[in-house]
């Protein structure tokens, strides 16, 4: 296998592990799940309010999105949210840099 490709696969695997950690935590501790759901509800409501402004339609759209994103597909959305959160903090760049420099010889 190409050496650089090998490093990329390891970096992808690290991203996957990072996205899976909160899902694992939420399935192990119900308190973590409740907390994550509250955070997601607030995040969805503030996002919709930013787009639509205050009003009934904001609450209706938020409710639809909360049903899908917080209750029906909680695990998927939580993983994506944590991934996006770390992306916003530029934390993934640190992981790429760390893994990339450490595994360059392989």
């Amino acid at each position: 296998m190409d050496q650089k490709g090998n490093v990329l696969l390891i970096i992808f695997a690290a991203f996957l592990v990072i996205a899976l950690i909160p899902i694992l935590l939420s399935s192990l501790f119900w308190q973590f799940k409740i907390l994550a759901q509250i955070i997601l509800v607030f995040m969805i409501y503030s996002t919709v309010r930013g787009f639509m402004g205050p009003g009934y339609i904001t609450i209706v759209i938020s409710a639809i999105l909360v049903y899908f994103m917080v209750f029906k597909y909680f695990e998927i959305v939580l993983g994506l949210y944590v991934f996006q959160f770390l992306l916003g903090l530029q934390f993934l760049s640190v992981i790429i840099w760390g893994l990339g420099t450490r595994l360059r010889g392989y």
Partner: peptide
Amino acid sequence: QILIDFFFIT
């Protein structure tokens, strides 16, 4: 930014 890190910094 991830792509830049992948292909330029790494």
